[in-house]
């Protein structure tokens, strides 16, 4: 018995060592990012340096972000606006599509599902120039890039119904039938029964939709091209790092990154439970 116990203890010790090493690897870049964001601008002019710990801590980079010199606040608000609207509308669209596909049997249902599946196999960037042109027709590029980006994200979101539909499929149909026998219409069933029962998946859908615009670089840079008022944070900040003078912007990038990462991470951590539920369900159901 004793040998079993020591064996287990050794096994656990090794596991702990592993987990601690993993945690260090996983946190290391974020710690670096955090520390570097507080490096004083006088050290190497805010560029990259060969050491981790700043010699003098200061809020230079943060001050600069909020000063008139940079448009960071504007970019931040742009992204926030996009994220909020996309989260709201995309969730609504996905819920509508999922309910219709999960509960109703209409002509062309399987055709629609297959057709969307095939559409999803085309790479998204393929259609970039055409989308740009379409947006331009509506005046939604450059100055109007923000509503344009919202429109693009929401318009095609119906195709991402899989996870939500999978969730709806697990709600027993008998509930619907019972309500319908009592005279409730489809719309009533949807609004007063299905939606209140689907809180976890609604939160999941909204959370994913909210987080995506923060990384949207590809299309955002294309649509807002040359009009810095309409940049989102991803577009603006990668320009700092990729232009020739990135040395002057490195700590500023770190500071901006922290300002973006902290609220998004906190939100994510609070809703983590729902996220896990969503991805696990989605992965198993495909």
């Amino acid at each position: 018995m004793k040998s079993m116990k020591t064996k287990r203890a050794v096994g656990n010790a090794i596991t702990y060592v592993f987990l601690i090493v993993l945690s260090i690897i996983w946190l290391f870049p974020f710690v670096c990012l955090f520390l570097q964001s507080f490096r004083s601008y006088n050290e190497n002019g805010g560029g990259m340096v060969e050491y981790l710990l700043p010699k003098t801590f200061s809020l230079d980079s943060y001050k600069w972000l909020f000063s008139g010199e940079s448009q960071f606040v504007r970019w931040y608000m742009n992204t926030l606006i996009i994220a909020v609207f996309v989260a709201i509308f995309q969730t609504i669209v996905v819920l509508c599509v999922s309910y219709a596909l999960s509960r109703m049997r209409f002509k062309g249902r399987t055709f629609l599902m297959r057709f969307w599946l095939i559409l999803g196999m085309f790479p998204g960037f393929l259609t970039m120039i055409c989308l740009y042109f379409l947006l331009k027709q509506f005046g939604l590029t450059q100055e109007g890039a923000i509503p344009g980006l919202i429109l693009i994200s929401v318009a095609s979101s119906g195709m991402g119904y899989y996870v939500t539909k999978g969730y709806f499929d697990t709600i027993p149909r008998a509930l619907d039938e019972a309500a319908r026998i009592d005279g409730a219409s489809r719309a009533r069933v949807f609004f007063t029964m299905i939606i209140p029962m689907s809180k976890p998946i609604i939160i999941y859908a909204a959370l994913v939709a909210f987080m995506n615009p923060w990384c949207d670089y590809v299309f955002a840079s294309y649509v807002a091209f040359g009009h810095s008022d309409s940049y989102n944070v991803a577009v603006a900040m990668q320009r700092w790092l990729w232009t020739g003078d990135y040395q002057g912007y490195f700590t500023r990038f770190c500071a901006g990154g922290i300002l973006i990462a902290i609220p998004v991470t906190i939100l994510f951590m609070c809703l983590q439970k729902y996220y896990v539920e969503g991805v696990t369900g989605g992965a198993v159901k495909g």
Binding site: W26, C215, M237, Q238, V264, T265, Q272
Partner: peptide, 17 residues
């Protein structure tokens, strides 16, 4: 929670860094 940080932090921040 520690591992999940990489999902939570927007990729353009973490990957660029």
């Amino acid at each position: 929670t520690i591992l999940v940080m990489t999902i939570a932090v927007p990729q353009f921040v973490s990957l660029l860094y």
